[in-house]
């Protein structure tokens, strides 16, 4: 089991480990323009495939929305 905090909510995954890329794919966001921060640090897009998540990680996934 993998327990993470994703955008402020606790989420559990049955996988024991998951890369950022696999997480994005499981959420349906593969290839979408998003940015990811893990435990306060940016995970560059080039490292999504090679960054493994650990239980207890805090992730923020953001997009651009309308604003002034």
């Amino acid at each position: 089991m993998l327990d993470i905090t994703l955008n402020g909510s606790r989420r559990s995954f049955t996988e024991t480990s998951l890369t950022v890329a696999a997480l994005l794919a499981s959420l349906g966001y593969a290839g979408k323009r998003v940015a990811v921060e893990r435990n306060g640090e940016i995970v560059p897009r080039s490292q999504h495939e090679s960054t493994w998540l650990n239980s207890g990680d805090t992730l923020e996934i953001v997009v651009a929305v309308g604003g002034g």
Binding site: Y29, K32, I61, V62, A64, G66
Partner: peptide, 20 residues
Amino acid sequence: VTVAIRRMNIGQDPGQPNLL
């Protein structure tokens, strides 16, 4: 044009158009 940065609405239909 200015845009805001916000948490992605997890669970929202990923096919929805994106501002960008």
